[in-house]
């Protein structure tokens, strides 16, 4: 859309300024207040990093952070492996099936609360003791779907004839994968893994339902949720800022590796 009047351009700019203000002011206020020296969570009284220091000595938070890291790393590794294989399988398959497409797409659209209660019922009916391992099992479900979607997008433009050439030259299936296919799709695989990692770090509802009783397997979002329910504190502001920073960094790298992924 080109050739627009100055008035149209001005109103477009106004819309963008307002929308970006709406999107970013709440986050900016939160980040700014995490550096607040005063004890009141919303009234500014000078710069300080003391809330970050106090986070580092909060055992509950450190414990939850460690749990989150374990869950995110484990579910990312499994999901990246399964999701990549799934993507290659779906893309090299000759028949396209609606059921298969729906199955691969479903974890991305199913409401969290539904999957959460379904897994809770499932695990308790099988008498599975719930904990970090059940959170990992659950997170892999949606993570592998996202990895698969990212890798499939890359495979769409992949020239399969080069794998045939490799096979004609005597390479085994595995060698072809390792030397030909993998190097081409690697950026998408890493981008998918980073996306899975941030999704897992941020996921709250499913973890909440599949963590089991007790505080042993509390993850960071669960910890944040219970802290918020007790009221707002400068400490939550600092913790929130750190968690957001991790997500944003992982996403920025993912976006760089897989240009245009978020924009597709």
């Amino acid at each position: 859309m080109a050739e627009r009047s100055a008035a149209a351009r001005r109103s477009g700019t106004t819309v963008l300024v307002l929308v970006f203000a709406f999107l970013y002011v709440p986050i900016a206020v939160l980040v700014a207040l995490s550096f607040n020296a005063g004890g009141l969570p919303t009234v500014w009284s000078g710069f300080s990093t003391k809330w970050y220091v106090s986070l580092a000595s909060n055992r509950d938070i450190l414990h939850a952070a460690l749990n989150t890291l374990i869950v995110a790393v484990a579910s990312t590794i499994i999901a990246t492996l399964l999701g990549t294989l799934l993507a290659i399988g779906v893309e090299t398959r000759r028949r396209k099936g609606t059921v298969l497409e729906a199955l691969v797409f479903a974890p991305m659209i199913i409401p969290d609360i539904v999957l959460a209660v379904a897994l809770l019922s499932f695990f308790s009916m099988l008498n599975v003791t719930m904990g970090l391992h059940t959170i990992v099992l659950a997170h892999v479900v949606f993570n592998l779907a996202f990895v698969c979607a990212v890798v499939r997008a890359r495979l769409k433009s992949f020239d399969w004839s080069i794998t045939e050439a490799s096979a004609d030259l005597g390479a085994s299936g595995f060698t072809t994968f390792r030397r030909v296919t993998l190097p081409v799709i690697l950026p998408a695989v890493v981008a998918g893994a980073l996306l899975a990692f941030t999704l897992s770090v941020d996921e709250f509802i499913i973890a909440f339902f599949t963590a089991g009783a007790g505080r042993a397997s509390t993850t960071l979002p669960m910890q944040i949720y219970s802290m918020i329910r007790f009221g707002i504190t400068p400490e939550i502001n600092a913790l929130a800022t750190l968690v957001m920073a991790v997500s944003v960094i992982a996403l920025a790298i993912s976006q760089r590796l897989n240009k245009g992924m978020v924009g597709q």
């Binding site: 492996l81 799934l86 090299t92 398959r93 199955l103 974890p107 999957l115 379904a118 499932f122 892999v140």
Partner: peptide, 20 residues
Amino acid sequence: PTLLMMPALAWLIGLMVVPC
């Protein structure tokens, strides 16, 4: 292709379709 999809599909069926 079916072999490659198997582990992921098993995961989705066992931990999404069956629980739902």
